[in-house]
Each structure stands twice: as C-alpha cells, then as structure tokens.
Design a protein around this nucleic acid. Structure first.
Length: 798
RNA sequence: GCAGAUGUGGCGGAACUGGUAGACGCACAGGACUUAAAAUCCUGCGGCCCAAUAAGCCGUGCCGGUUCGAUUCCGGCCAUCUGCACCA
C-alpha cells in the first residue's frame, strides 16, 4: 500500500491544531524550560521561499526532541510586519497597508502550517499590532527619558528626488539605488539611539555567549574599539588648543602637520584669523556634496586645503607645524582632527608628498623615500623614547609622559555610530513624543499605544515631509493651553524586532511588556536561529535593548540569545542565488504539493551542514521522498514488527539512537538522517524487527518527518500523538563490537586488515599480523613496529 | 587593503582528540520482477594500469615541513565567498 502523503499530512496537522498538542503552559515551572526561537519573517507578498523552511525545520527538530526529552518548550512564531513593501502597496492602491500585511500574514501562516511546524500559535505576535507596539513605544519612552534616545542635528544621506533619507546601503556610486538620483550630505534633526554608550558592554558581552566566532568578529569590528590617547595641540598665538585622537602617541616626534575634518568647529571659530577662509568654506561645501561612500573611496587621491593663518605647536617638540583641512578626516570619529605622522602612516604620507610637507622618520625600518613604514622598530629622533624598540613600551611611556605633563591622556574610541531611529514613512511605530516650542516631552503611559492615524494618501511630499504630516488633526495637539506637535517620522523596522523575543513569553499582557516572573524563568533564549545578514543590525540592536532593559531591572539577563546559529543559504540548482531574474526560484508550495512536507523537511536537512550554503537539487528532493516511502513501507508492515528480540539489529539500533541524539544536539542533521537510513537499510534485510526498535526509530525520525511518523505510530497501535512520548535511550555498551577490523600498514600505507578481539595486546596479535602480510615482509628489514590499540598496526620496513 | 570562512569523486556531502579517505544520498550502469513501462528489490560505481583477478601506482586546491602515519598540525602560496573599509 502506497503512502498517501497529502492525506496523512493534512490529517495530522488538523489533529495537532484540534488537540493543541504544542500549546505551551508558560506557568508550568515543574519541568526544565527550553526556549527555541526562529528569527521571525517579514511577511512579504511572495510568501515563503524555500530558504525559510531550512532554519524553521532545524528549530522544529530541536523543539520536538526537547519536548520528548521532558522539557517545557517555548517555540513561538510571529511577524516583523512593519516595512516598505506594504507602504508602497498602500501608496499605489490607496488601501491601508494593514490590509496587505494581514493578507500576507495569513499566507505565511497557511504555509507554515502546511510544513507541520510545532509552533504555539497562541503566542503569535505582530510588530504592527498596536497591542504589541504599545510596548515598543514604551521602551522608546524609557530610552528617551534616560537620555539614550536623542533628537539631534546630524548629517544624513539626503535624496532630494525621493524626498527621503537613505541608509548607506541604499546608495550606489553616490546615487540612490532606487532611481539613480543624486544623494547629498545634509544636516537634519534626527532621532538616534545612543548605542555607542553601550559599545564596551556589547563588546564584553560577546565573551559570554555561544555564537559563531565569525559573527562575534563582525560585531567586534563593527564596534571597532581602539585604544590610544587624546593629545592637545596648542594653537599658535592663543591659549586655545585642538585635541587629536591617536593610537600611536609614541610617534608624536614625527608629527609634521595636522589635518582637520572640513566640518571641524575650530575653523569657523578662528575665521577672522584665517586669510583663506572662503577656500575652506568652499572645500567644506564640495565635501558635503559627496556621499559618504565617495568620500571614503580608498583609491581617491588625497585632496585638501592648507589653513592660512592658523598653525599649531607640537606639544613635545614645540615645533610649529601647519594645519590642513582634508576630507579623509571624519568629523564623526575621534575628535575630527588628527596629528599627521607621514613617515609611518600611508594616508599622511600621500598627503605630505602631495603638499610637500617634511617627513620625519621616528621608527627605524622600511624605506620612507618610497612609502610610509608601518612596521615595528627602534625609536629614533624621539627624545625620551629613543632606543625603545617595543611598540607597547614606547606607547605606554609616552602616555605616562603626556599625563604627567598635562598634554594628553589615554583614550578609547569606538567606531560604532549612533543608531538612526527615524524614517520619513508611514508604516512604522509612531514616536511617542510631543514637540513643544522649547522642549520635547514623551507621552504619558496612559496615552500608549499612540496609534497610527488613517490617511487618504500615504505618499511622502516632494519636500521630504513624512506622510504623517498630512494628518493635521492628529499632528497638532493642545496640552494645557500650549500648542504641541507630534513627531511625524516613525521608527525603523529594527525597533519592533529588538525585543520581540521577550513578548512571546507573555504576549497578551496589558500591564507590562511581560510578566517579570515569567521573564526570569524563560530568558534567555536557549537557541536562536536565523541568517547572518543580521549580524550588525538586528543582532546588535537586540543586544543593546536587552542590556538596557537589564540595567532597568526589567529582564533577568544581559544577553538575550545564549546560543546563536545561522542557517546557510539555499541556492538555485545552478549554484547561484535564487532570484526571479535568474529563473531558479523554487516555491515551497509546489514542493509540498508534489512531494509532501516531510520530503521537503528531510531533504533540506539532508542537503548538507545547516550553516553551509548549498544548491537545490530536483533529484535530491525525489530521493528524500523515496526514503520516506521506504521508511513507511518498512514500518507499516505490521506482520514484520513483532515483540521478539533480534540480536542482529541490536548494535545498529543502539548506535542509531546514540548518533541521532548526539547529532541533533549538534544540529548535525544530515549525518543523523544518514544514520537512520543505514538502520533502515540493515533492517530491510531482516525477516522481522522487534517492536521496541521500530518504535524507537520512528521516534528518532519524528522531529524531522513528523507526519509520516505520527501515522506509523498510529498504525503500530497507539491512539495518542507521538509528540508526548519519551525520547528513546541507548545502551552505550551495546554500540560496540567485541571484535574489530584492525588496519595493517606498511610504511604508513594500508596493506591489509585483520579481525581481532577488542583491546588485544600487541603480543597476542603480532604473529597473526606478520602472517597476514608475510609476502610483503619477505626480504625486508623491519625497523620499527607501531601498534595503537584498536586503531592501527604499522610496520616500518626498509 | 584589513578581518573571517571555505576548498574532498560526475554532484550534495562523510571521516571521533593525527590512525582503513569517499559513510549516506543523487546521478549513472547492470540484474530481478513485468507483455512492457513506472514503482520496487538486489549489485556495482575516485582515477590510472590490466581481457580480468591478484598485485601495483596516483589521489582531499598548490608547494614545502613535522610524524611510523596528515583531509586533520605548522609555514608559504592560489582561488572562491562574506563582512568592514581613508577609523587616525
């Protein structure tokens, strides 16, 4: 009898829903907890693509296994529902973006259920639901009141044509990615979150979490800590000074000029002393027209202007050196000013060459007539540092000296920038503040959630005003006789996703973001799975918010995600990224229709290691289906499943239970499936299978292929779901043979094997081994024999 | 440029702390069943040499090293992918 996957899969999906098989009682503290989480999807109009089920199946396997192992498992799902596509749909159709979003969410849920995931849908959340974003706004409000959410003037990438601010990755070659319109730097009042305040915490926290080393490294680089010193350079003829940040204070004797960022305030402060102030203003203007990307283009030749009438004094040599303005110095890093040491920094070297500035070597080595020398060496021309050859020593000595003489002090800088927290868009969380003439105030808790007003037209104005500006009744309010204006930009997509993992624990709580006792019990997330692309966005923002909420005593742990894993990308069958234009997209609906959900799950887990990118294969999915049919054929034949031991299967059974259990734990699903296949192949050759073994293997396979295994469990005479059964156990002693095939090598090359008793001593097997390879030892001189117990026997001859 | 990762048959991949390289699957080939096909079951399957077997030789990106023994450890290259990029 053939296995009818579509009928059986539907049957069990209905059963799970009806019986609430996977509903979690979060208040049941009697069992150990396990919180497995997927990065929730953006409900796009395309529905699920074939990459989604990869990660979702992996977490589902863990959730189902942990449940069978006696854990109280929290395995929720929700939707990151704010975003641009819904807004564009609204602009084009005039319908509310919520309509589009709800429709897509319904599609996603249908598809997720069709794949048999064990989500507890009673915990479902959506970031665009006012009941949810009430608490996003509430967190923002705390950040604002604590000075971490700030409304500041800052340079942004402005696209006049599109009327909006663009992020760096929305710009290509100084033009907008969409439309190819020019982008300029412009100062705008922006909401930002002071994530740099948490830089050190975020850096240190990486040491305590089980994340891929590469992802930690990406975050470390992004945070970009550098240790050095701030040094004050006196402006000639004044008591004023300019502070620079340097990581190499030990090269101070080699400073021959200073470079300021074009926006440095000292320029305007001394405008009347500077004879070429107009040139500097013009240069600043040109620089501002360049996008950040253009400005930081490495291959670009150095440009700059000398400041006429402003010199600074090297504080250690008292030599007067010139000051330049150049756009290779950024206002938003360090102090916006650098001390230039052309002999030992290639950028300063290029600049010095172009402007004919002297180059003084202070570290021995290299050939500074050709290029800057950035290696280590003995300090020369360096007063108190002369003769030192250890970089660390000379830096420390200089920092000590700077401190004692009041010229400077040790300083740390981070590359991480403020998190821009506003978009001139409609479909996002309203920022819960009121702008009064002289100050900004957060809304009272009783006014949350501040719900998005309905609009007739969702498009932004040409002038770059946010769509919410059109809701004049909503925007303008009177508070105690004073006029106030609501904020009209909305929060970015990353707002709602920065704390959603907390809300799943207590999704309907109307009084707090989640019950404290529940948070204490359930946090942190034990396993978090999602793509690498979130390494510097979502994963950093979430960590910051969680750290902040920890400081406020709201959540129990600093770090939200104990263990993080990234699934690899599923590529098209041609090895390229799936895309409509390449025509290599695989639709999960088609696969489920033609092969069944279990086949898709098994195939995606069998393709290769979870974390690797791997190409889709049409024949591969057929193979997965073939295996499921074979599995069904083997275990549905009740005449062969009997209550009687079969010693020939004992070892393979215990080996399989052991390997599958350990491999699941390691998320090594491809090798676990391969072991189940091996057992099936062996069992196929037997006349009968002990019922205990059949049931054990069905349980092992259940997390991967839940439908077929529920059906088989039922066929073997069980009325209740397999999901509440206990995970099989193995007997380690039964996984080992008492004889082994020992390889025999001559000069490290395999020549033969010999069957021996386990743990045999060299004495007992030596003669047998020699006999086995006697023909090869003839006339040879034995130099050495190496026997590694149960591993190898190697004879070295000449 | 800097940082991280990867490189194994025709293909996806396996190999514990250095110990029989290629598990498992796909593709392919042969056989059984069938009037036939599909499905299923069984067998073979890295390359070279050979009619074939035995034996032999080569083989985990490349070059070298350590070792009785290296896909695994070390040094140096090459290629691909990802992240950051004038960060002082």
């Amino acid at each position: 009898m053939d296995y009818n996957f579509s009928k059986v899969e539907k049957k069990w999906q209905d059963y799970w829903a009806k019986n609430e098989t996977f509903k979690t009682d979060v208040w049941d503290f009697s069992k150990p907890k396990y919180y497995v989480l997927d990065m929730f999807p953006y409900p796009s109009g395309q529905g699920l693509h074939v990459g989604h089920p990869e990660g979702y199946t992996a977490t589902d396997i863990i959730a189902r296994m942990k449940k069978m192992q006696g854990y109280n498992v929290l395995h929720p799902m929700g939707f990151d529902a704010f975003g641009l596509p819904a807004e564009q749909y609204a602009i084009q159709t005039g319908n509310h973006p919520d309509e589009f979003t709800s429709k897509n969410i319904a599609t996603f849920k249908r598809q997720l259920n069709m794949l048999g995931f064990s989500y507890d849908w009673s915990k479902e959340i959506s970031t665009s639901d006012p009941k949810y974003y009430k608490w996003t706004q509430w967190i923002f409000k705390q950040l604002f009141n604590d000075g971490l959410a700030k409304y500041i003037d800052m340079p942004v990438n402005w696209c006049e044509e599109l009327g909006t601010v663009l992020s760096n990755d929305e710009i290509v070659d100084g033009k907008s990615e969409r439309g190819g319109y020019p982008v300029v730097r412009k100062n705008l009042k922006q909401w930002v979150i002071d994530i740099p305040k948490y830089a050190e915490r975020l850096l240190q926290g990486l040491n305590d979490i089980d994340w891929p080393e590469s992802t930690k490294e990406i975050q470390r680089n992004w945070i970009g800590k550098s240790i050095g010193a701030n040094v004050n350079f006196k402006i000639e003829g004044t008591d004023d000074f300019v502070t620079v940040f340097t990581t190499r204070p030990d090269t101070l004797y080699g400073v021959t000029f200073m470079v300021l960022s074009p926006e440095h305030p000292i320029i305007e402060k001394y405008a009347d002393r500077i004879s070429n102030i107009e040139d500097l203003r013009a240069y600043k203007n040109i620089a501002s027209l360049k996008s950040e990307l253009e400005r930081t283009e490495l291959s670009k030749e150095k440009t700059g202007v000398k400041i006429e009438g402003l010199n600074i004094i090297n504080p250690i040599t008292n030599v007067v050196v010139p000051v330049y303005v150049a756009d290779y110095v950024m206002m938003n890093y360090g102090t916006g000013a650098i001390m230039a040491v052309p002999a030992h920094d290639q950028r300063d070297y290029d600049f010095a060459k172009k402007f004919n500035i002297p180059i003084i070597q202070v570290i021995k080595g290299g050939d500074i007539s050709k290029e800057a020398y950035t290696g280590d060496g003995e300090m020369v021309n360096s007063g108190i540092l002369n003769g030192l050859s250890n970089k660390k020593d000379s830096i420390n000595k200089m920092i000590d000296y700077l401190g004692q003489s009041g010229i400077g002090k040790k300083a740390v800088n981070y590359r991480i920038r403020d998190w821009i927290f506003a978009r001139q868009r409609y479909w996002g969380e309203p920022v819960p503040v009121l702008h009064f003439d002289d100050h900004i105030e957060a809304l009272d808790d009783s006014e949350l959630p501040l719900v998005l007003p309905e609009l007739k037209d969702y498009s932004p104005s040409k002038k770059g005003e946010a769509p919410l500006e059109k809701a004049t009744d909503w925007v303008n309010v009177e508070v105690n006789g004073k006029h106030a204006k609501r904020e009209t930009s909305t929060m970015p997509g990353s707002a709602g996703s920065s704390w959603y993992f907390l809300r799943y624990i207590d999704p309907n709580n109307e009084n707090e973001l989640a019950n404290k006792e529940l948070l204490e019990h359930w946090m942190p997330v034990d396993l978090y799975l999602g793509g690498v692309e979130h390494a510097t966005g979502h994963l950093l923002y979430s960590r910051m918010w969680n750290n902040y909420l920890f400081d406020k005593g709201i959540v129990p742990t600093k770090e939200p995600f104990k263990k993080l894993v990234h699934q690899g990308m599923i590529l098209g069958s041609n090895g390229e990224k799936m895309s409509k234009s390449r025509g290599n997209v695989v639709n999960p609906d088609d696969i489920v229709r033609d092969y069944g959900a279990d086949s898709l799950r098994v195939y995606e887990m069998f393709m290769g290691p979870l974390c690797d990118s791997k190409p889709w294969s049409e024949t591969g999915i057929e193979g997965a289906k073939r295996f499921i049919d074979r599995f069904y054929r083997l275990f549905s034949d009740t005449s062969k499943i009997i209550d009687k031991p079969n010693p020939k299967l004992e070892k393979e059974y215990h080996k399989t239970v052991k390997k599958v259990t350990l491999d699941f734990e390691k998320l090594s699903f491809n090798t676990a499936i391969s072991q189940i296949m091996i057992f099936v192949n062996v069992a196929y050759k037997e006349n009968f299978i002990p019922k205990e073994y059949a049931e054990g293997i069905i349980k092992l396979f259940n997390p991967i292929a839940p439908h077929v295994t529920e059906e088989l469990w039922n066929i073997l005479g069980h009325d209740e779901t397999i999901a509440n059964e206990c995970w099989p156990v193995y007997d380690d002693s039964k996984t080992i043979d008492n004889t082994i095939n020992l390889p025999i090598q001559i000069n490290g090359k395999l020549k033969n094997t010999i069957e021996i008793q386990l743990d045999s001593s060299e004495d007992t097997i030596k003669a047998l081994v020699h006999e086995k390879v006697a023909n090869l030892l003839e006339g040879k001189n034995i130099l050495k024999e190496i026997y590694v117990k149960n591993k190898i026997y190697n004879i070295v001859v000449k």
